[in-house]
Amino acid sequence: MAFLEIDNLSAFYGRAQSLHDVSFDVAQGEIVAVIGTNGAGKSTLMDSIIGMVKNTGAIRLEGADLVGRGSAEIVRMGVGYAPERAHLFPFMAIEDNLLVGGYTARDDIGRNLAHVHELFPVLKERATQETSTLSGGERQMVSVGRALMTSPRLLLVDEPTIGLSPKVCTEIAATLRRLNQEDGLTILITEQNINFAMSLATHVHVLETGHLRVSGTPEELMADDELNKAYFGT
């Protein structure tokens, strides 16, 4: 049994269908990336896992079906989510944003907060600063930090590098790798930045207009001529 199983998942916004029978697995301790262009359905996939979109099919975390459960319950079951555009609380201090993340995992707040501060020391230095005044990279750090405050076993990160400088992208990649290797955290990311995804993930899935088109290891996908033409123009 895979850690996360996505089985024939279709998602709907009203009448519009934005995911069509998507299926893939994520093994425990793995980093998996879903790549695709704007509108491919990447955020819908993430929102479906966390219970924010109406969907059919099955999403199982260690065998327990998540479809039909509310987001609060799914978070309690161990799914942490850093969404696209962060969705931080703009007029709250950094520290308070992180503490809101600890809403469900109250017993772990001290330990989780220390861990987030260790990963991102700047969040400790600027603990009282409002997040509306932060740079894109810092906002991403708060977003990942807030997700870690939920004591996740599966971390979802939607487009972690969007709008960020190459230097910040490298830092984010290093942090995600560290969380994976040192803490054994299972991570699912979505990306438009193919190089970032390929450098980080052990398995990559390509999503196109809501259909899963091809899957494989980064090496396998690099060898796919058609895919190279479509995404790298070579």
């Binding site: 966390i50 924010m52 978070v75 989510y81 969404p83 809101v100």
Partner: peptide, 20 residues
């Protein structure tokens, strides 16, 4: 109290923090 504040600022951000 913080959850009330969070919902007032960003409902999605609050929901994915485990707040109903």
């Amino acid at each position: 109290g913080r959850a009330i504040s969070a919902v007032s600022m960003d409902v999605k951000g609050a929901a994915l923090s485990g707040i109903n």
